Amino acid sequence: MSSSKTSHFLPLPPLSLRTPPPPYRRPTIISTYSHQPDRSIRHDDSSMAYYRPAPIGCDLNHGFDRRTERNESVDEHLDGLCDALRKVEEESGKGERKGGIITWRGMITRIMTAPYEDREGWEMTAIALDGSVYVELHDPPDVRAKRRKQQSTWAWQTYMGYSFESFSTQFLVPEQENEDWPTGWGGDVNTNVQWCNVVRSAIGDIPLCLGGEVDCVRAEPGTPHPGLEKCVELKTNRVIENEKQEFIFHKKLLKHWAQSWLLGIPEIEVGFRDDSGILRNQRAFETEKIPRFIASVPSAHPPWTPGPCLHFLHAVLNLVLTHILPTDPCLRYPPDSIRRGEQSPLPPATMWRFSFIPRRGCELYEVGQMGVDDTGRWGGVLKEDYVRWRMSR
């Protein structure tokens, strides 16, 4: 969607930039919640899985025909994250720090890795409410349909990642085993099931509240949540057989590092499979050591360094906050004006978009104002009852 309003453009930093970047504060966990097999949410750790090494030689094709896939046409927006924040504040009185960003870990990952992304652009929607800016991917139905069509050609490779997770985890209440289950199989894949952590952090002086899925924890089955320091991320990769494949893997480590580092996950377990889907070996990476590992790889030009990523992240978020926070309707409408009744109309949200143009930078522009749409979402993003709760406190 284009806009005739003023836009603000932020160029990419030079990849040779060596100025120390803004520090990233170590994340602290503030809440967890679990998506159940039917995609419903429970505010507990019932979907938390426990790590166990996948058996070398296991077949990652197993169970492909029995998989259950989440309905990607249903747009959940930021609902799970917002519901978790509301529950935390209502039960403990503690909320996120004001003046920052509330979003999924995946959104921040996209911004962080943008300096090294030369093919795929993206666009995000942002709105201000109660002293924070909420950010989500702008993902209209036509774009989503095109992506699903593209992803269908990679369904097998995507499935092997989920299969590796099943071979690498077990739940407190395991599925009833079937006689055809191979050794180590943790249960048929259902991508509805997710365990999400909500953390508080900051990049420089910018507060962040992030929600993201965590694959498993390294602890004895039955142990309560052992903390972020015991969380593990699981990834798969083709067996590396030549220098080109090694270079590609080193580039992929940027996203792996960013995803885990942002959420405070200290360990990434990578399973290497052959073209037939057989797991050949595994390797553990300590998240905080990955940039040093990349820097040590013999090469005239390392595939990436974290400096430009962190500089760009801080610059983009600063641009977003500078222009969007002043459009927060809570600055103009007193809480009493919302408390008068559920039927009173909400003040409109000022919608903004910021888009990434590969190899160029990021553009921010105002889209316009929107109240509650036909789906009951304020600004097309947040649920009406959540907004009323925020504005009436």
Rank of each mutant, 00 (worst) to 15 (best):
E233W: 06
Y116D: 05
P11M: 05
L262F: 12
F167R: 10
T191G: 07
F164K: 10
P345I: 04
D130L: 00
G186L: 13
F64I: 10
R273D: 03
S168L: 07
L60N: 06
Y159T: 13
K5Q: 13
R144L: 00
L253T: 15
P14Y: 12
I203L: 15
P335C: 13
D275R: 14
G307C: 08
L60A: 07
D59W: 08
G227R: 13
R39P: 02
G131S: 01
E286R: 14
A155C: 07
E123V: 00
S16Y: 03
K146F: 00
P298M: 08
W352H: 15
R105E: 10
T32C: 05
K98D: 09
L313H: 13
E175V: 03
R280P: 04
I338N: 00
I265N: 03
P55I: 11
T322I: 02
E136I: 00
G307Y: 15
I206N: 11
M112W: 01
H62N: 04
T19Q: 10
H62Q: 03
P21M: 09
F171W: 10
Y333H: 11
Y24A: 03
M1Q: 15
A145C: 01
P335Q: 13
M1I: 09
G57A: 05
T68D: 11
Q170I: 05
L263T: 06
P23V: 01
T19G: 04
H311A: 04
P334R: 11
V239G: 07
G222L: 07
D38N: 08
F285H: 15
P326W: 07
M370Q: 12
I127P: 02
E76W: 14
P207G: 05
A84V: 05
Y386F: 12
K98G: 15
R339W: 01
H77R: 13
G57C: 05
P14L: 04
